[in-house]
Structure formats: C-alpha cells, structure tokens
Amino acid sequence: MEKEVNNCGLACPQPVINTKKALDEINSGVVVSIVDNEVAKENVTRFVQNAGHQVDVKKSNDNYMITITKGEGQQVNKSKDNITITNTTQSNIVYLITTDALGQGSPDLGYTLMKSFFTAIKETAPAILIFMNTGVKLACKDYKTIEDLMELQEKGTEILACGTCLDYYKIRENLAVGKISNMFEIVNAMESGKVITVP
C-alpha cells in the first residue's frame, strides 16, 4: 500500500520531517513524498538515502515525486542511479559493539578476542555492524581488525561508526572502514534487525 505525503508549499525542513514521520509509521512499504522545489527534493532524497531506503525521483509538471521503498519491498542490487542499499547480506543480525576489547579483564586478551570475533563472523556476514564508544577505534587505521572489517564490507555488511564517539576520541580522520553515522541512523539500524550487543 502506498502512502502519499504532499509537501507542496512547505518550506524546509518540513518536507523532511513529514517524510520521516510517514516512514516511521510503517515497518515496510512505499511512501511517495511530493515536493515542489529543488531544495526540498535534495534534502528529502539525502535524508532517505542516509536512512538506507530505496529512492526514486520523477519530475511531474512543477513537482517532484519521490518514491521511497522501506524494508522488504526494496529491490536489492538493482543498479540504478541514486539508489543506495548498503546492506546486501542475507542476515538480519545487527551487532552493536561498544568497546575495543571484548569482555572485562585483561585488555590485551580483550583485543585478541575481538580480532577473532570478527574473523568468526566473516562467514555469515551480519547485516550491520555498529561501532560506538571505544568500539569506533576498531574501524580506525592502525587497528588489526581493519582487514576483517573490509572483507565484511565487501560481503555487504553495512558498517556504521558513531560520529560523536570519533569526535570525542579525536580520531574522525583515522576512520578506515565504514561510514560516519549519527544516533538517529544508529537507532534506525538497531530497529531494523536482531540486535546483539558486544560489550
């Protein structure tokens, strides 16, 4: 079932907010967001792409029809411009990794365990890996975990690193794999699958 959101005559950021609301109300399905100016088209498209939904923009008369597919209806691997689906694995598992050392106790042991953890999940390739707090360091250069993470990314695992955390530890420039994310996107990612926290 399609849901239509008419944003004609509305100034930014209202079209984005209305589209977000409509998408929040459904688990999966299609939302058509209609906007009447370039700025709203850009902003809505940007928002939707970053949220990981499929998007298609058509111009009709003076308006833009932005068709957004959320969840199951997404056609995976359909190569078309301005469609971004980063997660293309079969898994629905989302790992939330909040530390750079697995478990409490000796940090050295923790690092070793974390490294073998990534090697172990490479086979199944989870849908999403979320790195938060000191966990973000694992996706930064000079960490031994990078290679496994790159392989996972190639297999279709989406890798999100918390931007606030990277800034806090002043290592934003060092991020070597995955994309910088925000709490809003991270919450969406966690709600999209089965979350397993790695403390």
Partner: peptide, 9 residues
C-alpha cells in the same frame, strides 16, 4: 555533519 546527512540543509 550528521544533521547535514539527514537533509537539514
């Protein structure tokens, strides 16, 4: 940067 990603431009 995060807000820009969300289309708050």
């Amino acid at each position: 940067i995060e807000l820009a990603q969300m289309g708050m431009i």
